[in-house]
Design a protein around this nucleic acid. Structure first.
Lengths: 193, 193
DNA sequence: GAATATTCGACCGATTAATTCTAAAAAATT
DNA sequence: AATTTTTTAGAATTAATCGGTCGAATATTC
């Protein structure tokens, strides 16, 4: 039927909320079904397992993140501001996109190889985006870098490393300020004086 | 030992956070124990079941609520402002004290009779508090009521009825404004013109 | 009204989680 | 320092839960 894909999306959107609230393990098929006013077994008509639903959820949220990131890049021409906005969106999205975040940091989930694949896919995308931002900055003379590929890798590594300390502790206040500080530090070595 | 009661409190405080995040059913003894750096079975030295821990948590939070409510009442002498503050604290606390809230509204828990007892205890306390607030208002000529006992019951019933629509929907914004509106409506029939 | 798509209740086996058991550390008492 | 008592926790037990299957029922399409 034509509507099958539509309903798969409905499932993804609904399950996403439950996953983000309770995490993968604590979310039951029963709950996913109940939220949609369906019987549990009906869900299996659309997805063949809980993992498959979760994979679709993660894919969907990665897509949302990608969109937000490219919107941030398009929002300005100034390379410095652009990188600044990119970092902010990227770090803040990680808070919101908690499924994705959990998928990456939750030890329980390490055995799912699709997480690994997702991570790789995401990493490549991110490095490419950062490299683009850096390259544009170099071209316009704002940034001072020999090898944008290597630099993009370095920046991305730094961002990944910052995720944990940034969100594990005080989850609410000071994030903006701390991000600014981090970005400033990042810039000292990049921006041409 | 003397410290046994102390450690029971530690368990209650710690378990409270986990319960409020995941609810009764989804919280495991394993998690409660892990959060305290103890073995799962050690917890059973202090509480004889998960239910008993939860009961202690609910008791504790009801106590917190009682304290906040009487602080609100003591915070002013003006009867109108006092009732206004009482309602605000009462409605907002319900958001925070989510264990208690869940205990009352979660259908899964209906079979625990201690919930019923807790509910009764709380209702009586609340009616007494409201009656006191109303009575003081009548005495000073601010309120216009024949029977404060009956009026207290009516106000309390109204508040209980408001809990659900108020918190089930948009859980964040407009609550303050909506509460004010509700309080205003409540006052039209109470405050002497 | 046959064929196809969709739903769901009943069930199963594996896993997980609550609780108990046993015995060993750790503290307190003698 | 021996012993008694308190506290801890790994292992064992038991109960419940949950993901997933199956087949039958119901709705939809042709």
């Amino acid at each position: 039927m034509v509507d099958k894909e539509k309903f798969r999306e409905k499932i993804v959107l609904s399950a996403s909320k439950i996953f983000s609230r309770y995490g993968f393990k604590k979310t039951t098929m029963e709950e996913i079904a109940r939220a949609l006013n369906k019987g549990k077994s009906s869900i299996y008509y659309y997805f063949k397992s809980k993992e498959e639903i979760f994979e679709a959820v993660v894919d969907h949220e990665a897509q949302v993140l990608r969109n937000e990131l490219s919107a941030a890049i398009k929002s300005t021409d100034d390379p410095e501001l652009r990188l600044r906005r990119y970092v902010k969106v990227r770090m803040k999205s990680f808070e919101k996109l908690s499924n994705y975040y959990n998928a990456i940091f939750n030890r329980d989930l390490d055995h799912f190889n699709f997480i690994e694949k997702q991570r790789e896919k995401y990493d490549l995308m991110e490095i490419a985006l950062i490299r683009y931002v850096l390259w544009m900055g170099v071209r316009s003379g704002h940034f001072n870098l020999e090898n944008t590929g290597l630099a993009a890798l370095a920046v991305q590594t730094a961002l990944k490393g910052l995720e944990l300390p940034l969100f594990w502790e005080k989850r609410n206040y000071g994030i903006d300020a701390r991000l600014d500080a981090i970005i400033d530090i990042l810039f000292y070595g990049i921006v041409r004086k």
